[in-house]
């Protein structure tokens, strides 16, 4: 049997990234400020984690404007959804396995 630890996704090994994924999982799209408020991190920190997730193909980034202010929204991709579900399954298995 495969060791569940190997199934844990290294990309999600951060509280901020997990937070971002959780939010985009249940919403069609979430903007930068909403994520910031939700996860309570600094702009720079959030931006770097968003970039990592985008580079892994888990996030779809849409840049738009509200009036003159930029409004960047984030949505989950199909592969992001798959990866996140697999990660949660692995977490679940590990908890069960430890009993």
């Amino acid at each position: 049997m495969k060791n569940p630890i190997e199934q844990l996704n290294k990309v999600f090994d951060s509280r901020v990234r997990l937070g971002i994924m959780s939010a985009v999982m249940v919403n069609d799209e979430v903007n930068f400020n909403e994520l910031k408020e939700l996860i309570q991190v600094t702009d720079g920190n959030l931006a770097s984690h968003l970039k990592t997730l985008e580079e892994n193909g888990y996030l779809l980034v849409k840049k738009g404007f509200i009036g003159r202010k930029t409004n960047t929204t984030y949505a989950i991709t199909k592969s992001g959804e798959k990866a996140f579900k697999a990660h949660i399954d692995a977490l679940e298995k590990m908890i069960k396995g430890l009993h």
């Binding site: 939010a23 999982m25 979430v30 909403e34 949660i88």
Partner: peptide, 12 residues
Amino acid sequence: TLQDIKQIMDRS
């Protein structure tokens, strides 16, 4: 971790 995920899903 699971608790965190659940909470953020709910709050968002």
